[in-house]
Structures are given as C-alpha cells and as structure tokens.
Design a protein around this nucleic acid. Structure first.
Lengths: 225, 225
DNA sequence: GTATTCACTGACTCGTAGTCATTCATTTAT
DNA sequence: ATAAATGAATGACTACGAGTCAGTGAATAC
C-alpha cells in the first residue's frame, strides 16, 4: 500500500517544485511579463505539465500569493500574542504591516492583482476558496483583537471592529502600492516621502480610533495637535 | 488656405470619434477584455487607422481616463468655489469624490490601471505627460485649499497639506475600489456595507485632521467618541 | 491631364495561454 | 516472465489579439 502514498507525496512535491519555479519567475517579471513557457523551463518540465497541476497562470499566481498571506498571518499573530496594552499592540500591527511591505515586497506586490476583477475571473473557484480561507484567518485574528480593544474601552465604542480593520488595511495598502511604484515620482513632483506619509497615516488613524483613555496609553506615539 | 485648416479640424474630429468608440467598448468590457478590432468596428474604421491616431491600446485608454479627470476636477472646483468654512468644504470634497465614484463609475474604474506599473510601461511619454498635467491641476486645487485651512488654524499645523491630500485620496480610493468590485462579498463574509464604511472612513479622517477650533465648525458631522 | 499627398485599409507577423493526441515508464494481472 | 493498464509528461498545435506595413484610391497641387 506504500506505493499509493509515495505517489501522492511525489505529486505534492512536484506541485511545490512548480510553485518554486513560478515564484522565481513571477517575482522577477511580474504576472503579465512572466510566461508559462519560462516557468516550465525553470521547473524543467513542459508547459503541458504545469496545466496538470494548476488550472491557469492565475491559479499559479494565486497559489504563491497564499504563501505570502501565511507570512503576513505569522507577523500579525506574533505581535498580538506578544500582548501588551491594546493601543500599543495596534500601533505594532501597523508596523508589522509595514515590515511585510518592506521585507516581503514581492509577496506584497501580488496583492495588486488580488484586487482586480479581471484577475479573479481567470481564477478557478477551488483556488479562490482556498485563498479566502487563508485570508479570513487574518481578518478574524485582527478583528478579534480589535473587538477586545472596544470591550476594554480603549477603542471608541461607536466604531465597528470590522470597519476599523477594513479602513486601516485599505488606507495602508493603498499608500504602500503608491510608495512601491511611484515613490520617486511623488518625491520629485509633490515633494513628499511616501514612506513617511504611510507612517503618518497610520498614526492619524490610530489617534482617530482611540478613546481618551486609549490615547493616554500611547501619548508618546501621537502627533501634536 | 482653408484646406489646411479643414484637414486639421477633420483630424481632430476623427480623434474624438475614435475616443468615443473606444470609450463605449472600454466601458462595456474593461481594458483587458476590449479588443482593438472591436473598437475599430465601433468607430467604423480599420484597426490600422486607430494606430494612426493613438500609439497603443493603453494610450487610447489613458486618453479616456483624462476625460474622467476633467470631470473630477470640475466637481472639486465647484465645491471649493462655492466656499464656506474650511472643515465643511473638506467634508463636501469627500462627498464630491463619492459622487464621482457613484455617478461616473466607469471613469472611476479606469484609475485602477493608472496605478499599475505594467500599464504605465505601455503608455507613450507624450500621453503620460499630458495626463500628469491634468492630474496635477487636481492636486494643486485641493492642496491649495488645504494649505489655506492650515493657515486659518482649522487644520492641524503639524500636518503637511500634501500629505493630507494623499492620505485622504488613497484611503478613499482604496475603499471605493473594494466597494465597486467586492461590495457583495464583503457584506456576506464580513457583514459590513462598504458604502457606509467609506463614509465613516471619510468622517474619521476629517476628525483626525481638524484642530479643536475646526471640529467646533462641523460638530454635527462627527461621530460620538 | 498628370503627379503628389495622405488618410485609410486589412492581411500579415509575432507572442503567448491553453489543449490534446501521443509517448514512455511504472505498476498490476496472469 | 510477459502482457495489459495506468497515468505522468510531452510538445506541436490552436486560438486570439496587439501591432505593422505595403498597397489603394481619392483629394489636391501643378
């Protein structure tokens, strides 16, 4: 009966090998410029074989995106598990996201496509669903934490934890996308440094969700009014 | 000498006709799904002719994007010219952007591509530059207004008007992109209504940039702490 | 009446995602 | 030991769309 198991193992291994090859090419060239022929060559397999393991170029891309989401989950989990006062942990979550942006830039960049409907239409439902699961874990982690903050009276009671999470995440992401691609342009045309802007945005956001009591906890992190 | 002028006029007219045809197709199908053959058919011209007027599919797309930017400029200009207390006008600018998102959805959607480096690489420098000019006018308009607010002591002096503009714009845009494409999903999976979240985000942002004096001006618009 | 110009054409090239009939090695049945 | 069955892997092939360019014909100039 060992043969069946070995075959399953080998198949999974092959799947990972393909993913490694695809990751290398996608990281180097991006989704559009990368070709399946190149990935096949990198994987030392024929193009046809790739399609035995992944339904489409986009499925392959999404599978790699999921690796990135795992990394992000770990970063957030560590910050939350380290504990401390809610406002301070919230600030650290912002820093963790910036760390993801800076240290795992290639994974970060993949989020851009995750946002486009054109991309999603190419993805198989199975891959989509698998991705949603990984994603939901991140949201649940963060939202659960925010809920605690509200119960403890450190975050404003008039806010919804889900909304706070979404607002924080989208504004940070949006600035990062810009900082990633257009940092230099913004500096020369508008005279600002988007990395600082990103940090300032996080600070402003933090201030805006804390109660008076919450603000007292992190007075040192806030801006002068 | 009238012949030269007539020819120039006709050429400009043709350029507009092509733009109209392209707009129809792009609005219906989006950048990726739309084909130059379809656009040519809509314009009742051959594909080759399109390339006599626009360098690439992306140039054509960007030319339409610029039409949208003109509309946005007008919306903002009207709000600012109508005048009133800075904090209230700032809130109205947020509403104007939401109006752009809701009433000019097809133009709004084009911004997504404006953000991707893959797209930019396809665009000719001339079109790029033309686009930057239109864009800059919007930024100058808004930033000039914010600067006034700071001078009047209604917006926090520790903030940079350019940064405020960028932060506000990116967080709103990011939520809109999500609201546009994934409204339903977010509602069923996370139980939130992204349109409300967008408005709440704007309110939070407004609060966070106003001084005490500024907040007093728009007490009715803010959330309970 | 002839030459020139120029907007326009559409068949063509080129590149790439995805397919499928075929090959070949491994496993199973006798 | 040999034949049949399985299924992983192949690569030539199709489909399709962006962009090109030699050629056409009508308006204009001489």
């Amino acid at each position: 009966m060992g043969i069946q198991e070995r075959k399953v193992r080998e198949k999974e291994h092959r799947r990972e090998e393909i993913l490694d090859a695809a990751q290398k090419i996608f990281f180097e060239k991006g989704l559009v410029a990368a070709t399946m022929d190149e990935i096949a060559e990198q994987a030392e397999l024929s193009k046809g074989t790739l399609y035995l393991y992944y339904r489409s170029k986009e499925d392959l891309y999404l599978a790699i995106f999921m690796r990135g989401q795992e990394v992000l989950y770990e970063l957030f989990r560590r910050v939350i598990e380290a504990g401390g006062p809610v406002p301070r942990v919230l600030a650290r979550l912002g820093d963790a996201y910036i760390e993801y942006f800076e240290r795992y830039r290639s994974y970060f960049r993949m989020m851009r496509f995750f946002e486009t409907p054109e991309f999603h239409r190419q993805v198989s439902t199975e891959m989509r669903d698998a991705c949603d699961v990984v994603n939901q874990r991140i949201w649940d982690l963060v939202i659960g934490f925010l809920r605690r903050g509200i119960e403890e009276g450190l975050l404003r009671r008039s806010l919804d934890p889900v909304e706070i999470a979404v607002i924080f995440w989208s504004s940070a992401t949006s600035l990062m996308i810009r900082a990633d691609a257009e940092e230099h342009e913004w500096h020369s045309r508008m005279g600002i440094d988007l990395s600082s802007t990103l940090r300032r945005s996080n600070t402003l956001f933090l201030e805006s969700v804390l109660t008076g009591e919450g603000k007292a906890e992190v007075r040192d992190l806030l801006l002068p009014s």
